[in-house]
Every structure is written in C-alpha cells, then in structure tokens.
Simulated assay, not measured.
Amino acid sequence: MEKRILFTLAVLLIAVFNGVYAQSGQNAIEKQKFHFGKTGEDGAGYSQAVKVGKTIYISGTVGVGDAATALTNVYNGLQKTLAFYGATFQNVVKENLYTTNIEEMKKHNDIRKKYYNNDFPAATWVQIQRLYMETALVEVELVAVLP
C-alpha cells in the first residue's frame, strides 16, 4: 500500500512539474482560443474553447428555455465554435452533457442526433441540481480532434 501511495505522489509531482514547466519559456504550450464575447468569459475566467495541437477543448455551452429550444441553441453554439477551427461534429470524440432534467434530454435526443449525422462520440450525460447559469436547463462540453 505504501509503495502505491509513493508512486501516486511521484506521478503527481511529475505532472505538476511538467505542467508548470510546459507553460514557461521555450516549452510553453501554444493555445489558440475562441471567445463568443469577452464579458461572460472574462468575468467567469474561462475561454469558450482552446485548441492545443490538433485537439479542441470546448467549454460548456448552455441552453435555456424548453428542452427543444435549449438543445437547438446549445448545438448551434457548439457548431459555431467548431467552425471557428474548421471542424464539424464529425471531429468530436467526447461529449459531456449536464442537465437539470435528464428525462427532457432523452425525450429530445433526436435534436442532438441530427448534428452528429450518425457519427456519435463517446458521451456522458449527467443530471445535476443546477448549472452555473441558474436559468440554464442544459450545458454541453466537447472534445474534438482535427485530422
């Protein structure tokens, strides 16, 4: 057990060191960022999306209102973010969906499916008590990879 703990600590220290080292000097990671607008993103302290190498990490895009409207707005927003990098939903490899009403998401899954055109990513759907934006029904984050 003690060896496992020491190994875990060593791995964490290496990861922390590499993370700090990778952000400084000649080894800085090149990040290409996308913002919908400075107000919300800068105020909360995040970027809507960050591209590192060929991988695009897209922050949660939120939808409010009834489920059909919320999902349509979310996936249209995600489509806009992907397009900024020359990507489509066919580049998406991972999707995380958070909602305050999972049954409504399941009922309107056809809206989501049309964006993927039967090329679905690995996905996780989770019902939670509330989202950062208090009135939001759904929030979806993606990871996409460019060829």
Rank of each mutant, 00 (worst) to 15 (best):
A67Y: 03
P121Y: 02
A44R: 10
K3M: 02
N118L: 05
E104L: 01
E95D: 15
A136R: 06
K114I: 10
K107S: 04
R112F: 09
I14S: 08
T100K: 00
A123T: 02
A136L: 11
W125D: 11
F36C: 03
Q129L: 00
G40E: 14
E2W: 09
E141V: 01
Q129G: 03
I128N: 04
G86S: 12
Y21M: 02
K38L: 11
A44H: 14
T88M: 05
M1Y: 14
A49H: 12
K31N: 11
A28K: 14
S59K: 06
R112Y: 15
E134I: 05
T69H: 07
V92P: 08
E104K: 02
P121V: 01
V20L: 14
L71N: 03
V140M: 00
K113T: 03
N73K: 03
V16Q: 07
R130S: 09
A68N: 11
T81A: 06
K107F: 00
M133T: 13
N91F: 08
S59T: 11
G86Q: 08
A70V: 02
Y132D: 15
I128C: 09
E95I: 05
D119K: 15
T72L: 05
V74A: 01
Q90E: 12
L9N: 12
L12K: 06
L131Y: 01
A10E: 10
F84N: 15
I14V: 14
G53Y: 10
N117E: 09
G65A: 04
A67L: 01
S59E: 14
T81W: 07
G37W: 13
A144R: 01
F120I: 07
I56G: 06
V74H: 00
R112E: 07
L71W: 00
V145I: 03
